[in-house]
Write a protein that binds this DNA or RNA. Structure first.
Lengths: 217, 217
DNA sequence: GTCTATATCGTGATAGAC
DNA sequence: GTCTATCACGATATAGAC
């Protein structure tokens, strides 16, 4: 009989704390919550949190890096395919909206914590090279040189993509309040918005593409 | 001789505290800073902060609402002009980038603080009606009915505008770190990006417009 | 109005019993 | 490994002298 302890959801104390910490840190940020709050959310006490993770700061670093990794992975395997660039970007937008629907707070979390002067600092080159290694940037340059893709620099392309994916989730609370719409309505809104964003971005980045004539399904 | 006390920069204790609080709160958020920190930044002590503003929370509300107001005003007077819609939106984008270059932290501040469950809540209708009162939404519907503007709903239009204005400033730290670029380089990047965003959005929202042939100056 | 001193509480972290 | 109890500190807020 096989050992199942590693296969079933790990419900050890350590894992419970890790899960609770992920939820609480991502929702409230490092300075927005307390160790006790995390312990309570895990059904434990502060002593155990520090027993397993030494300090609030150490635990935070683990959670932050994991969130960063999840986020990065969700895009890497889209880029690591053999599809033409335009299809890759369409898939990326699909994937990103899917990922963000599941974890809508991660971008805010990363942006806020990296924005603080005393906040987390990632290895400058690691993330960028990770993405560059997929060849996506080189591919853009090839398409641009061939005149199939609009000639704007890589940074602006990534900012365009990120803006239109992440912001609608980050600002959800504000938008819902200002427009007075419910959670369910906004979820539907986001489905439409993804289609709009895809049409707009692909249309702009690949001005000559036939697929630009496509209307919303 | 006129009284100048109200004309020159008010350097009273109360105003000094207000200014310091604005800076610190916007940079670090409510839970990211302390009353002492604000007092120190103003060259005062904690007792004075509470003497003038009763509590950290009360002071925060004042600062938050002021930031909200500044932000709102910057768009309202663009909408309160007689230009055609397309020009209004171009001007809005100009204004927004100008405003955000000056106060890049305000969107994050508003979004973060409104996102928290125990955070600030604004009067649902006030902001929306304030904007609606300019007639900008009605104008969109007229242009859409006339076939000059793409038929997407108002919420998506505002999300498109906001995403492409605010996100590049909110995520500045991440983008700079990931792409390994300096503050000065990123400032230049943003100037280019504004032009790209304008071309893309106007081109998408007004598909038939002649101005879409315009290239970047 | 402005300061120092202090009350009161919540925080991160740990010691020590079990 | 897990808990209770506790320490040392820093937070908000206020009392009271000047």
């Amino acid at each position: 009989m096989l050992k199942l302890t590693k296969l079933k959801a790990d419900s050890s104390t350590e894992q419970k704390i890790r899960d609770a910490a992920k939820e609480v840190f991502i929702a409230k940020g490092f300075s927005g919550c307390t160790s006790r709050e995390i312990a309570k959310a895990a059904g434990m006490n502060v002593a155990l949190v520090n027993y397993y993770f030494r300090s609030k700061t150490a635990l935070f670093k683990i959670i932050f890096e994991a969130a960063m990794g999840d986020f990065l992975l969700s895009m890497l395997d889209v880029f690591n395919t053999d599809l033409p660039l335009e299809e890759k970007l369409r898939n990326y937008l699909d994937r990103e909206y899917e990922f963000l629907a599941k974890y809508p707070e991660i971008p805010s979390f990363i942006i806020n914590e990296m924005g603080r002067k005393d906040g987390v600092h990632i290895d400058n080159t690691a993330v960028f090279e990770c993405i560059e290694h997929t060849g996506i940037f080189a591919e853009c340059k090839v398409e641009q040189a061939a005149g199939r893709m609009r000639e704007i620099d890589i940074t602006s392309i990534t900012v365009l993509m990120m803006s239109n994916c992440q912001f609608p989730f980050m600002a959800a609370a504000v938008i819902k309040q200002v427009h007075g719409i419910s959670d369910e309505q906004y979820e539907k809104q986001l489905v439409q918005h993804k289609q709009i964003v895809t049409d707009m971005l692909i249309g702009y980045l690949f001005p000559g593409s036939i697929s630009n004539q496509k209307t919303q399904k």
